[in-house]
C-alpha cells in the first residue's frame, strides 16, 4: 500500500503473482521472466493475478493495460505497475 514506485522489483511482483495462483504447481520454478501463460495461467487465474496485483499495490489497471502481453510475465506486470504508479505521482 502506498508503494514507492522505485522500490517495486520484478521479484516482489513475482511473489504477488504466485500468491494469486494458489492452485499452481511448481511455482518455485517461476522467475520474473517466466511465461505465465505457458506455465498454465488461464483467463480465470489471469484475473486472480490482476486482483492480487491491484490489491497489493493499491492500483487500478487502466483498460489499455488489460492485454495478454502485459500479463505474460511478472517482469512485464512489474513494468506496468511502475508505469501506473509513476503516472499517478508524476
Amino acid at each position: 500500500m502506498g508503494s514507492d514506485v522505485r522500490a517495486i522489483t520484478d521479484e516482489e511482483v513475482l511473489g504477488v503473482v504466485i500468491s494469486g495462483l494458489p492452485g499452481f504447481r511448481n511455482t518455485e520454478q517461476l522467475t520474473p521472466q517466466s511465461d505465465l501463460w505457458a506455465a498454465g495461467m488461464d483467463s480465470l487465474s489471469n484475473i486472480s493475478v490482476m486482483v492480487a496485483i491491484e490489491g497489493e499495490f493499491d492500483i487500478e489497471f487502466p483498460d489499455e493495460f488489460l492485454t495478454p502481453e502485459v500479463f505474460t510475465s511478472a517482469a512485464n506486470i512489474a513494468e506496468a505497475v511502475r508505469a501506473i504508479l509513476g503516472g499517478r505521482t508524476g
Partner: peptide
C-alpha cells in the same frame, strides 16, 4: 460470475 478471483476466497 464465480467471484473467486481473490485467492483468499478460493
Amino acid at each position: 460470475t464465480l467471484n473467486r478471483y481473490d485467492a483468499r476466497t478460493q
